[in-house]
């Protein structure tokens, strides 16, 4: 299992990387390589050239910026796990990260790599979609950004064009004091691809009414998706039939089947885990500050 031959370049800047990519449509970016290298080894992928961006400082780091946390594309997943900044501001991402691969792959895998790879089961894209993150893309024209929901098109398919480089992910930070998150997933083994993953984040007011709530599901269909839980907003969460809401929101989801689980299974698990994630988020938010009812 050895890759087909390719050339290797390590440009000094994102601009240079974009130039190389634009000039050769068969060139591919490599960052952490934790997904790309197996594909190379099996010869599923056979680029002419690998453009190694993992050491580009301009793509690295975690910073707080205008109501968001911006994570540079080549920031390793383990660096986010260990980041105090992320821990405080992105509790949902922190809950999801332990499910990403296993420790050795998180040591090398990058946040941008996971985004660019767009696996329908991947946790980081799920959190990005759930929170409505923006994906920053750089190319010869400069940097633009795009909502995660538009960025992900299907399994391994994104809006990235030849010559584009995912530069950063801008996760919105919720500032409400009563914030709660929930994350659940089911997979055959803990470190496997999720059959279904569910993420939820909720903000409550002093009285326990929902100010904002989001629920996202991964692994069910071709890409991570948000489900509509807007009915919860303005409601007293203590009295709201959460599982009913999730059940109706997931009833007609398009779901895939594979040799491990059926589409029906995915729909059932989506309803169950979605409800569990939302319930967890609500419980956490109720426990956070304010008056617990």
């Amino acid at each position: 299992m050895k890759p087909a031959p390719f050339a290797y370049v390590r440009p000094d800047s994102v601009a240079e990387a974009c130039e190389i990519l634009a000039a050769d449509e068969d060139a591919r970016i490599i960052a952490g390589g934790q997904t790309l290298i197996p594909m190379l080894a099996m010869r599923l992928a056979r680029p002419t050239k690998l453009v190694d961006i993992v050491r580009l400082k301009e793509l690295r780091g975690i910073r707080s910026e205008a109501g968001a946390i911006v994570v540079g594309a080549v920031t390793r997943q383990v660096e986010v796990e260990r980041s105090e900044l992320a821990r405080g501001a992105l509790p949902l991402l922190m809950k999801a990260l332990p499910y990403v691969g296993h420790p050795p792959t998180r040591n090398r895998g990058t946040v941008g790599g996971s985004i660019a790879n767009a696996d329908p089961s991947a946790e980081i894209p799920l959190v990005a979609v759930t929170l409505g993150a923006e994906i920053e893309i750089e190319n010869s024209g400069g940097r633009t950004s795009m909502p995660a929901d538009e960025f992900f098109i299907g399994a391994m398919v994104t809006s990235v064009m030849p010559g584009d480089c995912v530069a950063a992910v801008r996760f919105p930070v919720w500032s409400q004091p009563r914030l709660g998150t929930g994350f659940h997933e089911v997979s055959a083994r803990q470190s496997d691809f999720a059959f279904v993953a569910a993420a939820a984040q909720v903000a409550l007011d002093e009285d326990g009414r929902c100010i904002d709530a989001v629920v996202g599901l991964g692994g069910v269909g071709d890409r991570a998706q948000r489900i509509d839980v807007s009915a919860l907003v303005g409601q007293d969460v203590a009295r709201f039939p959460v599982s009913e809401l999730i059940r109706s929101a997931t009833e007609h989801l398009e779901a895939n089947s594979d040799l491990h689980v059926s589409a029906d299974y995915r729909r059932r698990a989506a309803a169950a885990l979605g409800a569990r994630a939302l319930e967890d988020a609500i419980a956490e938010a109720r426990a956070a500050g304010g008056v617990v009812q």
Binding site: G33, I37, T105, N107
Partner: peptide, 21 residues
């Protein structure tokens, strides 16, 4: 994980990195 080595002290897959990296 049979190929695990430490890279800057952190366990990593030696099969998931090229020598040139």
């Amino acid at each position: 994980g049979a190929c695990t080595v430490l890279i800057d002290g952190e366990p990593s897959r030696a099969c998931l990195m090229f020598a040139v990296q």
